[in-house]
Amino acid sequence: MNLTFSQKEKLKNILFHVLVGGFCIFMLYPLLWMVAGSLKTSGNALSATLWPEAMQFRNYLEGWKGFGGVSFLTFFRNSFFIAGTATIGQILLASFSAFGFTRTRFIGQKFWFAIMIATVLVPGQILRIPQYIMFNQWGWVGSFLPVILPQMLPVPFFTFLMVQFVRGIPTELDEAAEIDGCSKFGIFFKIILPNLKPVLVTAGIFRFYWSWNDFMTPLLYLQNVTKYPVSIALKMFSDPNAITNWGAMFAMTFLSILPTIILFIFFQRYLIDGVAFSGID
């Protein structure tokens, strides 16, 4: 059988959609199941069927009420505050240091860069208790500080990515700006930062997602329920002594992953452009 080129392409496209689209179900199943669960009556939320027998949104209203008069409005606000500030801080810190590691020259530069990369190996668990004791001595426990500030410390991966990116920006731009009387800081803000956009978005999305999901740190440091983020609130639905309201839990879990999914869809293009590998060595 002889197919023309365009027929071949068409066939390929169909095959692609059938395979990839079919496989999609397998990837999306848990999400769909959870959304279905959030629409079922609470007692049936765990049943295996994907289609809720009677669509109802009660779980969302009930779940939104939260616990002891503190609603999910508060939890979401806290989550946005924590993840938002951590993200902005991380982006600034990472891009500052990336600039420092590439466009300035100072004693110990190589050493600090190596240290920075090496921190990727440090497991977070090792730091938990010493950090707690330290923050407690500083009087920070109960506030957002110990939750947010350590998360501003750039993940080495992102500083590394930014270093790669800054290296890719021609130094001629810097020199031209310097002749125009621009300081290093001017160069950073006027030339480097705008060019870093894709990698800033990449770093930002991941930091946002990680901070958003972090459960242990806020649990250890926040004392007042009105400061709890969503990640803690979701865990409060289950208790060994009581019936878990699965429907409400699924409803709120779904709402809680929406921001990440939206960010991902919206910024997908940058996400891939933000990872530059030219000249890994």
Partner: peptide
């Protein structure tokens, strides 16, 4: 000042 959580954690 109430400080309540679930059992986990």
């Amino acid at each position: 000042q109430p400080e309540y959580t679930g059992w986990g954690g």
